[in-house]
Design a protein around this nucleic acid. Sequence first.
DNA 1: CAGTGAGCGAGCTTCCGCTTGACTT
Length: 770
Amino acid sequence: MEENLVIVESPAKAKTIEKFLGKNFVVKSSYGHIRDLVKKNYGIDIANNYQPQYEISEDKKKIVAELKKLAKDAKNVWLASDEDREGEAISWHLFEVLNLKDENTQRIVFHEITKEAIEKAIKEPRKINIDLVNAQQARRILDRLVGFELSPVLWKKVKPALSAGRVQSVAVRLIVDREREIKHFESTASFKVIALFTFSDSGKTYELKAELPENLKTISDANKFLESCMGADFKIENVVTKPGKKSPAPPFTTSTLQQEAARKLSFSVSQTMTVAQKLYESGKITYMRTDSVNLSDLAVNTSKSEIISEFGEKYLQTRKYVTKTKGAQEAHEAIRPTYINVHEIDGTSQEKRLYELIWKRTIASQMSDAQFEKTTATISISGTDKKLYATGEVMKFDGFLKVYLESTDEEDDETGSGILPPLNNKTALSLKNATATEKFTAHPARFGEASLVRKLEELGIGRPSTYAPTISTIQQREYVTKEDKQGIERKFRLLKLEKSKIEELVKTETTGSEKAKLFPTDIGMIVNDFLMEHFTTIMDFNFTATVEKEFDEIANGKMEWVKMIDKFYNPFHKTVEVTLKNSEKSKGERMLGKDPATGKPVYVKIGRYGAIAQIGDKDDNENDEKPRFASLRKNQSLETITLEEALDLFKLPRNLGQFEGKDITIGVGKFGPYVRHDNKFYSLKKGVDDPLTIIIDRAIAIIEEKREQEKQRVIKTFEQNIDLSVLNGRWGPYISFEKKNYKIPKKIKPAEITFEECMEIINQAKKESK
DNA sequence: CAGTGAGCGAGCTTCCGCTTGACTT
C-alpha cells in the first residue's frame, strides 16, 4: 500500500512530480474537473436557494473509481490542483466525491514544477478554502443560468439550436461592431509630401530624403506648396540627435503566444494550442494555459548562464515581469522551455518552429535593451514658414534584438529608418524632386482569431483554457466566418515637381486585402442585434468585469454567493419572460424598395434555409398571387445587398429552351452557376460563362463535354453485382462498392481486373480497417 | 449536392472552465 496519494490536474505534471517525491508517494491526475452541473435541465434548484445539482462527467467515471480506491488505502491524501478558483473547486469536488476525511487530507499548492517548490509545498499544507470554492460555484451557476435561459429565447425568436452566453455573445458583438464601424467608415484623402535633396560635403555628394510632418488636405494645397518650392532656397536649420531604447516583450502567456504564432507562423489559435500541448506532454515546455508572465528563479538563472555563454555579459539584463492582465489568476509560470539550454528540439516542423519562438522570446526577455540614436534634421524653405524634416535611426547596440523582435498587427510606414548622411547646420540643399502623393485613411482592421483573443483578454473576458474553444464555438454556430478578402484597385493622384515643372499623374494601387479575418454572418448580426435590444446587461463589455469583482468578494468571505446570484437572477429572469412574451420573431427583415415591374415591395430576410429576397407580401391577396422568393448568394449579406442586386437574383433560373426534348435551365446553386438538363447538373466555367447572358449553344456544349468525361469514367462493371464498378477518378482508377472506394494495387491492370480480385481487395481493406 | 419558403408538432438544441485522447482525411 502507498502511504501518500497526491492528486494534480494534468497527467504530464503527475509524471514529473512523481519523480521528485520518491517512493512513498503515488501521484495521479484528475484530468481537470471531475464533476459538473447535471446536463439535463438547469442543474440548479432555483426555488431552493439555487442549490447546484452535480453529476460525475461520463468520461471521468473511470478515473474517479480509480482515485476512490487509491484514496481509501492511502494514509494521507494531498490535493494539489492549481491555485486558482477552478483548482480550489476541483479539490473540493474530489474531497466530496472520494469521501475524503478531514484529518488525513491536505491541500497544497505550487506555481512551478521544481523539486524545491514541491517539497516546500508539502511542508506548508492547508485546508480547502470554502469561500474560494463558493466563488467558483457562483461563477459556474451564473454561466449556466445565462446560457440556458438566453439560448432558448433565441430558439423561439430567431432560429433553433442557436446559443448565447456571457463570453461568446460578447465575442460576436466585438466582430459585429467592428464590421459596422468599417461599413460606416468614410475614408478621407490627403497629400503626403516627400522631397529629395542633394548636397555636397567635403567633395562628396549625398542624397537626403525629407517630408512634411503633416499631410496637406487638398490637391490645390499640395499644388500651392510645390509651387512655393520652385526656385526656393533650402537650408538645414537644425540637427538634433537623441538616444532611444527598446525593451524586450515579457515571456509568453497563452494569449501572447497565440498572437505571435499567428503573426510569425500563421498558426490558427487552435493549431497553436494543439502544438503547444504536444510540446508540454513531451516535457519540452512548461504549461501552455497560463495568464502569468512570471519566470521561476531557476528559469531566470539558466537563461542568465545561457545568455552569458552565447552572447556575453553585456547582453544580459535579468528582469522580473509583473502580470497586468485583468482578472489574471497566476496559477502557473509563463510559457517557457523546460530546459533553457535546449535550443532546438526533434519533432514535426510545426513543433520545432513553435519551440524556437518560445525559446527566443524567453531568452530575449532576460537580455539587454537595444540602444538607438535618432536624428532629426529640420529644413527651412525660403518664402514659407513650413519646414521639412529628415529623420534617421541608427542602432548603437542590438541587445535582445539579436534573437527576437515581437511583431505588430499594424503595417508600419517605411519612412524614418536607416542612416542619415553627415549633416551640418546651415548646409544648403538643392532640390532634386518633390512629390505629393494622395493617401487615404484606412478603416479599422478586422479582427483575426488571435487579435480577438487579445481584445477579450483586455476586457477580462474568458480564460486561457477557453480562448481557443470560444473562437471555435462562434464559428461553429455560424455567427462569424474566417475568410480572406481580396483587395480592390484604387486610383490615387500624385503631383511631381521636377526640373521646375509640376506634373499630375493618376496611378492605381491594390488596397484592403485581408487574410484569415473574422466576418459576421447574417445570423450573427441578427442574434447580436436581438440580444443588444433585450439583454443590454449581458452584452455590456463590462459585465464580466463587474461580476468578477463580486466573485472576488465571495472569495474573500465578504459576500454570500446565494445573495449575489439572487440579485442578478431576479431582474434577468424577468427580462427573459418579458422578451418571450412581447418581442417579435427576429428575421433581420430589411425593405430594399419597390420592384419596378410590379410595384411590389422587395424585402430581404432570413428564411428557413438562409437569407432570401422576397417580392410581394403573403397577405397581399389582390390577385391571389403568392410572393416570389430567391436565395441570396454566398457572398451577399442582408445588411449590404442593394435593390438591383436583389432583383438580379430573380432573373434566375432562366429557361433557355429545349434540347433533346427536355428544358435547359440556368441557375446559381451552392457550388456556383450551373446548367440543368434532364435533372442533371453541369457547372458553368468560372470566369468564362455568365449565368445572366449565357446562350443555349454554349450550354449544350457544356453538357456534351461533361457527358464525354462521364463516358470515360466507367472502366468496368460486373453482372455478378451491379453495386460494384471500376471507375476513373481524379487520382486515377479505383473500385467503387456500396458507396465506398478502394485502391487498386499497382500490379493489377484496372481494365483486366476480375470480379473475384475486386472482392478480395474489398475484403482485405475491410479487415485492415478493423 | 444545386427545385424549397404554408403549417402542424414531437423532440432536440444551449452555458463556461478544468483536462486529454479518440476519431477521420
